[in-house]
């Protein structure tokens, strides 16, 4: 009944861009940057105040200097991290979507896998490192394998739920339009589940980065994690912080990029429900 509220019926063009007009977007960006600036100021204040010894916390200027002088090694460490992350996440995404779709469309498969899922999902991936080393040895394969294992679950669970809870009316409509089998799956069920699959991927993406860096830290297999570990062992505190900072930036960039992709490719995610 929302329709009675606004005279949009015959013009129809009145729906604004979901991101809002440019001015609003600009103001939001300003606030976000403001938050970052405040965080940097607090960081520097804590560092200068001596609350934390400079053996544990580097100041902003020294961290910036370390960042500038280690650009090369940092870039290659970031590359290593991103490689393991991408390989692991790709496997998790493909596996999660395919298996989630199959299980979500079959009540038998759902019941069959229920206990297994509940057991496997909370396993901390770091506890699996010994197994992973035995299976794959130290290196990219092991890291990517652990990343794939951990980030498989959110993709799988969201996909399963997404394809399971597709509106019955979408299905009925599809049947009146003579869409069955594979067409029904590809043209109706998967697009209907896409918003949930996308949020599963969003969770998986951050989780994959956390696991990648953690495994690198523990296993010393290269990447940002090992960079941070080596800096710490060498007592190069500012360099360590530079590494951590790069890790955070990578996470931010991946999340922001992914959100843009979702807005572009799954624009119905947060809008389809608007006119309920």
């Amino acid at each position: 009944m929302l329709e009675g509220r606004a005279p949009v019926d015959e013009t129809g063009a009145a729906m604004p861009d979901a991101r809002g007009p440019a001015r609003v977007r600009f103001r939001r960006l300003g606030r976000q940057l403001g938050g970052v600036v405040v965080a940097i100021v607090v960081w520097e204040l804590v560092s200068v105040s001596g609350l934390v010894t400079d053996q544990a916390l580097a100041g902003v200027p020294s961290t910036a200097r370390a960042l500038a002088s280690h650009l090369g090694p940092l870039a290659s460490a970031a590359g290593g991290t991103l490689e393991a992350w991408a390989v692991g996440l790709a496997i998790a995404a493909a596996g999660g979507v395919v298996v989630g779709t199959l299980v979500g469309r079959s009540r038998l498969a759902e019941a069959f896998t229920e206990v297994l899922v509940r057991m496997m999902r909370p396993l901390p991936s770091l506890a699996l490192i010994p197994i992973a080393i035995l299976v794959a040895g130290l290196g990219l394969k092991m890291t990517a394998g652990l990343v794939a294992f951990t980030s498989f679950w959110p993709v799988f669970i969201n996909t399963r739920y997404g394809v399971h809870q597709v509106e019955n009316l979408f299905i009925d409509t599809a049947r009146t339009l003579d869409l069955h089998g594979g067409r029904l799956l590809v043209q109706v069920i998967l697009p209907a589940a896409a918003p949930l699959i996308a949020s599963g991927l969003q969770i998986a993406l951050s989780l994959a980065l956390v696991v990648t860096v953690s495994v690198e830290l523990v296993g010393g297999t290269g990447g940002i994690g090992s960079f941070v570990l080596r800096a710490q062992q060498a007592g190069a505190v500012p360099t360590m912080y530079a590494g951590i900072l790069i890790g955070g930036l990578i996470g931010w960039a991946l999340n922001t990029g992914f959100r843009a992709v979702v807005q572009r490719w799954v624009p119905w995610a947060d809008r389809a429900e608007r006119r309920l």
Partner: peptide, 15 residues
């Protein structure tokens, strides 16, 4: 046979 349902927002495909 064609069918029109009450809930157009769950019958038109938003994608």
């Amino acid at each position: 046979i064609s069918v029109v349902f009450q809930e157009y927002n769950k019958s038109l495909f938003p994608w």
